[in-house]
Nucleic acid binder design. Structure first.
Lengths: 111, 111
DNA sequence: GATTGGTGTTAGTGGTAACTCATAAAGTTG
DNA sequence: CAACTTTATGAGTTACCACTAACACCAATC
């Protein structure tokens, strides 16, 4: 599954919000998500699997519990793509600014 | 449709790549996407409608042609969410770094 | 070691989104 | 104005993804 597909699900985004602040046991995440979205433990567990498989979350065993924390590497593709795009239109804005600037200069020259 | 849902589609991402560099007529986008993804003009047009409706693209009429250019405002939600999240784990990293730093200091103190 | 708690997995189902096909609308050209 | 170009829209179909239900697995507790 693609990094953008991962982020397109609101349950997964909420989960990432939770584990980005501090690590959380699976059960804690289930509690919150169950309350806010009304879905089952199984559903949450499947989302957690996706977050693991796509590099958005890391797991640590603590007895029977599984503690999830954020894994920044999952965001690399997304960040790269967004930065590339914003670079493009930023440079377009720059050349527009330059154009306006040179326009101003022309105006001055005409005066 | 959510901003993240918009970006989850590869055709829409490719389209945004195209129009972020310079404005393109609908037909030009169709040509590229048709070649790369093998989908119809209709499908592309429907994607363009989504990009319009969600604030990712702006349109300019030029006779029968419609020229699409990027609209940065669509990215606001995405950028905000990502920045918030990265802020969280960045501060977590900071406190970890502080912890390590203070650990080093303790080591020195022990020597 | 039986039972309970915590979590993950699998099979099957329903809803949604992306597609095609057909058609409309609006502009251009001969 | 008829034919053609360019783009958008609507109806209908298909594929996929998120969900539930049932079960499996492992650890803890009595």
């Amino acid at each position: 599954m693609n990094a953008f597909d991962v982020l397109s699900d609101p349950v997964r985004r909420r989960t990432l919000e939770l584990i980005s602040q501090k690590e959380h046991a699976s059960g804690e995440i289930v509690k919150v998500v169950e309350a806010e979205f009304g879905i089952s433990q199984s559903a949450v567990s499947q989302h957690l699997r996706i977050l693991r498989d796509t590099g958005f979350a890391k797991v640590r065993k603590d007895g029977a519990k599984r503690c999830y924390e954020i894994d920044p590497s999952g965001f690399d593709d997304v960040n790269d793509w967004l930065e590339l795009l914003q670079h493009f239109w930023a440079s377009k804005m720059e050349s527009l600014a330059t154009e306006i600037e040179s326009g101003k200069r022309s105006d001055k020259a005409l005066n």
